[in-house]
Design a protein around this nucleic acid. Structure first.
Lengths: 220, 220, 220, 220
DNA sequence: CAATAAACGAGACGGTACGTCGAGTCTTCCT
DNA sequence: AGGAAGACTCGACGTACCGTCTCGTTTATTG
């Protein structure tokens, strides 16, 4: 009678059953993508009834949000290596899971869903992106506290940049990334931006609008 | 009577008729959004038949992509302003068409197709990404020729970075971008990365930290 | 509350629901005719979905056949009146459902299917023609047992003759039959053929002719 | 200049070109049946344009009527053999063309069309059935003039009976007929009905309604 | 003997119905 | 009592065919 002991035959959606449904949903998502994922398919794979799914979730979107949140352990472990560079490498060591083709497919489906469904987007941003973003921010704040980042650098701009650059290459350019790519982006873009002196580019910043193009050539 | 002059009454989908369909699609898109846009609705508004739409486009996504690309002029004109900053601002002034919510929705739909359909991905990358990428590269090459970019900077890494950062904010963070955002990214990330001196960054990388530079090099 | 008593509200297609769909089909058929009858119209009138109709029937023809067969009682009751004439009149009183123009149209549609689809033809002959044919044969056998039919008469030839003659008039000649027609065919063709004495006919065959009986036998 | 000499390259629909279209129509009709015959298919097979077909015929029905009328030579040759039996065998020697499976298919399609389209039915009955029916009637009238058929026999009933019985066996029972079948029907049904004495079956005729069933047993 | 008007093939077009599929609801059985 | 199974309504999908139309081209008759 105790729920913990009737493991294999428990009919109610509690814990393990829920996890099975999540896995089924993720499987189907990875196989056919968000658009072609149907509740029937998830129900069939989970050997559950559609009614059961709809009793617990409002539709495919809430179900997938829950599934994604529970499938990725997404441990926002601080991973304090003592340097921004180390922290970033640590955080992106697994590329956020974009290391194999299936994971890319799942994530791509999420992108579509983000653009398609405002409700899903809001929930996903709050519950999935939010924590990652917070962790990233904390990381950059620590770097700033250590003096690695100039006071004038906008962390809201810089913190998500690495992820953006990498994902753009994955989705738009069709690149399957490795850790070397991450490292190069960190060294050539993120860290230079974190450490640049404001006056160096201040001239360039105003050149197009206020100064003559000729003046800027001197900056190079 | 000359066929070249009977412009307004030509029935075939050639130029103007196509444009009418695009406008109908954009109209419906603006009214009901991507999800509730149906081919029937577009056909009805364009006074065309569904068969005509399907003869020319595979479905709503290709139709809408075409419609959005043709509605926005998205002129890949080199736009040589004389400075990298000016060129970048010029190129991204319209955000590549990602200025309104529906455009984002349609573009987001592409991502799934990119991950699922290799043929579509190839075509998209060749015909859509390709020209933009080439224009961007040319722009950076000009900047390097002018001396705005250091020799050690990897343009293959830097050129797509701005688009990646912006699109990441749009898709993942749900930000509707304005030109100010583009300007800030250019000034705070792209230009610093373009103009950084390798040793300067190396210094920044190691200065104000608790670990030695040597230790970090091991991480590379 | 007992499931057996909730007759009017049962949603599944079981008996009464099916009957409602049949009635809707017959209604639409009567209103717009066979050609302009659409599955959408039937579904709308029956407050059913097209999917439900297609789940149960292959298309409009099977649906209408069922509808017509179920609307007409077409009871294949043996109807033993004691005479062949009475039995035949009894059996054909409803013409097998061919009493109105639409029924003829639907039944006529079967003919093409019979010529085109061997599987359908087999099923139709087994399940629809078969019982009628068996009942007809039994009827003629009873008549022979009573002595109404000569021993030399081929019942396999005579039993389907009435139906053939009547249907030919209906389909080919466009006659809408009444019971009087059936009666005249019975009296003037079926019963004479059933009761003729072989020698009598042979005499008739040769008498009043210009050629010899021998000559005609060669034609056989 | 003479139309008979420009045979292979004549573009206008005159004579031979028309015949080619008719053959194409009959071919398609035999292959896919009336329902699935499309104007596109006929046009494609005839290497003609749909516009050409519609210029000359109003739709598939007039086209098919013309095609059927011109394909079957349907020579209503009197074929006066001197006896009804001989005439009937002569007339049905080719079964009206129902000797092979394809012809049966074509004719079956016609039956469907007869039931589906009142316009086609009217035209077909006037132009195709009519002459055949008249020829048959003339044949029976000659027989009556020779004394082979009793005065009380209704020729309107008897004349179409043979065709009806045979076609019923072909379409409904799925029998591919041979000449032996025709002969047996003639000898066992048509000729007995033609030569029967009215008083022989008069009792049977009234038995079901006016006399007792018992009385009729005496008639056998 | 070119020029012209008619008729042609080819096939896109607007429209209508088709038959299928998925979402979300509901009922029935089963455990 | 609650879940599995699956039929149901609704609505959009993408396809097929109809009958009309516009294209160029070819043919037979004119200027």
């Amino acid at each position: 009678m105790t729920p913990a002991e009737t493991a294999t035959l428990r009919p109610r959606i509690e814990g393990e059953r829920e996890q099975e449904i999540f896995e089924a949903a993720i499987d189907v998502l990875a196989e056919v993508g968000y658009d072609r994922l149907t509740m029937d398919a998830v129900a069939a794979r989970a050997k559950a009834s559609k009614a059961t799914l709809y009793r617990r979730w409002n539709g495919k979107i809430p179900l997938l949000i829950d599934a994604l949140l529970n499938s990725k352990e997404h441990s926002h472990s601080p991973a304090d290596t003592g340097t921004l560079r180390g922290d970033l490498l640590e955080m992106f060591c697994g590329m956020g899971g974009l290391t194999d083709h299936d994971s890319v497919a799942v994530f791509g489906s999420v992108v579509t869903a983000l653009c398609r469904d405002e409700e899903f987007a809001a929930a996903f941003r709050t519950e999935f992106i939010g924590p990652k973003s917070a962790a990233s921010h904390a990381m950059f704040e620590r770097a700033r506290a250590r003096g690695e980042i100039g006071e004038h650098v906008d962390l809201d701009l810089l913190a998500p940049a690495l992820a953006g650059i990498v994902m753009h290459r994955v989705f738009m350019l069709g690149e399957l990334p490795d850790e070397g790519l991450v490292e190069r982006v960190i060294d050539q873009i993120i860290l230079p931006a974190a450490t640049h002196r404001p006056d160096t580019v201040a001239g360039a910043r105003t050149s197009h609008t206020r100064t003559s193009p000729r003046t800027q050539k001197d900056l190079t």
